[in-house]
């Protein structure tokens, strides 16, 4: 194993262990998607009467959207952990060791992606009880989990990049809150794409959150377009790579301020 992989795994163990010690966070993280599944899907259940939904069950339609939205919002907060480590001098302590620099970011991003995957399994399980089905079996589950994990990794990269630049919690929260709702609305999370106004459909094509929704939803449609799902997973992988590189650049610029 190379040093970079070893260091990433050592630090990943640290993040996961610390997270498991505070299971309350998982409960908090899962409260919101449950409200979407249990309340919102009921409140708007007649919406599928409109033409454009390929299903007559709104919870069936909504579930992939809730999965991706949960990964998105969870990941935007992930940079808080970096700010905590900066404040407490943990980052500086590691920087004075031979630990690979990239491992500090990579471990955080991987941690977020794994959390998103776990949340996805729980959400899909709950949705199953409400009658929502993943139509494409194990491969379908895999694609949905991958979509959530990649959305999580991509936004974790952005969140960490911003965290390393602003280095304070308040501006990080303010910046990410600013993007949260517009990116949720300019996507097919809550409504079928064909029902969106033309300009929003156009804008959604550039929204990485929506890429995850498109890929995941193919797996719960009666007709699955595998190449479309594959294309969007590929786009998400490119997005996650790009944001992680951006976060590394932010890390470099942070190191220059020391």
């Amino acid at each position: 194993m190379t040093a970079a992989v070893k260091d990433t795994l050592s630090m990943l163990v640290r993040h996961q262990r610390n997270f498991v010690r505070q299971p309350i966070w998982l409960v908090f993280a899962l409260t919101q998607p449950m409200f979407w599944l249990l309340l919102y899907s009921q409140l708007f259940r007649r919406i599928v009467d409109l033409p454009g939904f390929a299903t007559d069950s709104y919870v069936q339609f909504l579930t992939p959207g809730v999965v991706v939205m949960t990964a998105f919002f969870g990941a935007t907060w992930s940079g808080m952990a970096m700010i905590d480590d900066l404040d407490r001098g943990v980052v500086q302590r590691f920087l004075a060791t031979p630990a690979r620099r990239g491992a500090l970011i990579a471990s955080q991003v991987l941690h977020t992606a794994i959390l998103c995957a776990i949340q996805t399994v729980i959400i899909l399980g709950t949705a199953w009880l409400l009658g929502a089905r993943v139509e494409r079996g194990a491969a379908g589950w895999f694609v949905i989990i991958a979509a959530a994990a990649l959305v999580g990794a991509g936004w974790a990269g952005i969140s960490h990049g911003i965290a390393l630049v602003v280095r304070r919690e308040e501006p990080l929260i303010a910046i990410l809150n600013f993007f949260g709702l517009p990116l949720t609305f300019i996507s097919a999370i809550l409504i079928a794409e064909s029902l969106m106004p033309g300009w929003m459909q156009w804008a959604a094509r550039f929204n990485p959150v929506n890429w995850g929704v498109v890929a995941a939803r193919e797996m719960s449609s009666v007709q699955t377009d595998w190449s479309r799902a594959g294309l969007y997973l590929g786009l998400l992988a490119a997005f996650a790579t790009a944001t992680c590189l951006l976060a590394s650049r932010a890390f470099e610029s942070y190191r220059r301020t020391l």
Partner: peptide, 15 residues
């Protein structure tokens, strides 16, 4: 070859 104990500690307080 060095150890560094900074002013800001650097300990992971959650571990």
């Amino acid at each position: 070859s060095i150890g560094y104990v900074s002013q800001a500690s650097g300990v992971d307080v959650h571990a």
